[in-house]
Design a protein around this nucleic acid. Structure first.
Lengths: 101, 101
DNA sequence: CAAACTGGTTTGCGCTACAAACCAGATTAC
DNA sequence: GTAATCTGGTTTGTAGCGCAAACCAGTTTG
C-alpha cells in the first residue's frame, strides 16, 4: 500500500481533544494545578490523571509534586519540547483546515 | 463533575484523521472513486471501507455503487449535511488553534 | 473517633482504528 | 477450459485507548 502523500497524520498524542485542552491551557498559563486543570478541561480526575501521565511520558509537560504545608499539590507545566510539538501540531492542522476553506 | 466550558470537544467522527482526509478530498473534488480515495488518503482498503461506511451512516457522505460495463465502481460524494458538519468542525478547530496563537 | 473532603491513582470495560484475511467476479495466461 | 491474477471491495480479529467508576492516602471537620 503506497503512501503518495507527505502524510496528513497529525501528532495523535496532541490530537486527542482532552490532551489538546490540557496543552492549550498550559500554553496560556505557564503553571497550573490539578483542580484548576480539571475544572477548565471538564475532564474527570481519572482521565486528567492518565492524560497528564501520557503527556509527561512524551516529555511534553512537567509534573511537579510538592507539599504546601501538609497538603499535596501537583503543578503542571509545558516543556520546551511540548511547546514545539504543540506549535507543530497547530501549523499542521491549520494547513489541513485552510485547504477546506 | 462540572462542565464550566462550552465544551472543547469536536465532532469525533470528523476529528479522526483518516476520515478528515476523506472528507477534505470529497470537499474539494465532488465525486471520487474507491481507488482514488485510497491512493490519496494512504488508507488501506479495509480502513477506507469502514471509514466510509461510518461516514455514510452519519449521513455525511453518499456512496453510490454502479457498474461501468462489467466492472463495479463505487463513487463517493459529500452530502449537504456532511458539508455543513465539516464546516462546523473547521470553525471549531480554528477557534481552538487560534487560541494557541 | 467517625465522616467527609482533598488530591489524586488504579482498575475494568466498551469502543474503535488498524491490518490481515477473505471473497466475488472479471480478465489474462496457459 | 481452467488456473492464476487483478479489481474492488467487505468481514474479521486484535491491540490500544479513552472513559468513568472504584479505590486510596492523608487531612480536616463535627
Amino acid at each position: 500500500m503506497a503512501d503518495e502523500l507527505p502524510s496528513i497524520d497529525p501528532d495523535r498524542l496532541i490530537h486527542e481533544p482532552g490532551r489538546l485542552a490540557i496543552l492549550a491551557i498550559l500554553n496560556a498559563l505557564e503553571e497550573v494545578d490539578f483542580l484548576f486543570l480539571m475544572e477548565q478541561t471538564g475532564l474527570t480526575k481519572g482521565n486528567l490523571s492518565s492524560h497528564t501521565a501520557k503527556l509527561e511520558t512524551a516529555g511534553y509537560i512537567e509534573i511537579e509534586k510538592a507539599f504546601v504545608g501538609k497538603v499535596p499539590r501537583t503543578v503542571y507545566r509545558l516543556t520546551e519540547a511540548g511547546s514545539e510539538a504543540l506549535d507543530g501540531y497547530r501549523r499542521h492542522m491549520e494547513g489541513i483546515l485552510n485547504s477546506l476553506g
